[in-house]
């Protein structure tokens, strides 16, 4: 009974994608990265849910939508702990953990206003680095400056 009630916190979907284990504070960032404010499909989400592993987590369910690897990698930048579950006909079709890519292209903006990617029509490209504290940083392929987590802006 108890288990059943927990599952009902966020409605089940028949077909689509479930993104689970999103750090609670980044749910809206994932929302934005996936352009979910513009989708015509049904979207359910929950945040500040209890998670045994991660304290407070968020979850997003998007009906009738499946994502390519590059989109999944994009999520990894703000939600490195996330799991992506594909649902087909109410069944779990596949389940993958997102992985932080080594390089990313065209996803984030370079924080340096004098970078060529902010001055000319150039697609951004970064090497993804982790600092001593485990924080992600993006090293710009062009201006060689590093964009830290707090300065990250996504397209």
């Amino acid at each position: 009974m108890n288990k059943k009630r927990k599952e009902l916190i966020v409605s089940a979907i028949s077909n689509g994608t479930v993104i689970d284990h999103i750090p609670a504070e980044n749910v809206f960032q994932v929302f934005k990265m996936l352009d979910l404010d513009k989708t015509s499909h049904q979207v359910y989400f929950g945040t500040n849910l209890e998670s045994k592993k991660y304290g407070r987590k968020g979850i997003i369910k998007i009906s009738d939508t499946y994502y390519k690897d590059e989109v999944i990698n994009k999520i990894a930048l703000v939600a490195p702990t996330a799991t992506l579950i594909e649902i087909r006909d109410y069944e779990v079709f596949s389940k993958v953990s997102v992985s932080i890519p080594q390089t990313i292209e065209g996803i984030a903006k370079c924080f340096n206003p004098n970078c060529v990617t902010n001055k000319e029509d150039v697609k951004t490209k970064f090497e993804v680095l982790t600092d001593e504290n485990g924080q992600l940083k993006l090293a710009c392929h062009y201006c060689e400056k590093t964009t830290t987590r707090k300065n990250m802006v996504f397209f």
Binding site: K119, C140, H141, Y142
Partner: peptide, 9 residues
């Protein structure tokens, strides 16, 4: 060039 990254581009 005054813009950073312009030479790489």
């Amino acid at each position: 060039h005054p813009v950073e990254g312009s030479a790489r581009y």
